[in-house]
């Protein structure tokens, strides 16, 4: 059972790695003057500032946290 689980994890890891590698390889370089859409305020690869309290209560009410530039434990009486 344990071996089966480990094999599944390895397969998932390989699949994620391959998707990530394929994505990076298939990129076409974008010049600064071509970034008008990418520079739009809502295209930022980050949480919106208005989500601040939302992320905070999620870290209190749920067991998981982190990998979202928010709190990932510590600093408050949350998990």
């Amino acid at each position: 059972m344990q071996i089966k689980k480990s094999a599944q994890k390895i397969r998932t890891g390989i699949a994620v790695g391959m998707i990530a590698a394929a994505t990076v390889v298939s990129c076409s370089p974008v010049k600064e003057y071509q970034k008008n859409r990418l520079n739009d305020g809502e295209m930022a690869l980050a949480n919106r500032k208005v989500e601040k309290t939302e992320l905070s209560f999620q870290s209190y009410r749920e067991g998981a946290s982190g990998a979202n530039a928010g709190k990932s434990g510590g600093g408050c009486g949350c998990n």
Partner: peptide
């Protein structure tokens, strides 16, 4: 609490950008 937060962001084309995050 001690932690490390790592990310890699990539522009794919003029309309798409991605980020991979690990804590």
């Amino acid at each position: 609490t001690f932690g490390g937060s790592f990310s890699y962001s990539q522009i794919v084309n003029q309309r798409l950008q991605l980020a991979f995050l690990l804590d």
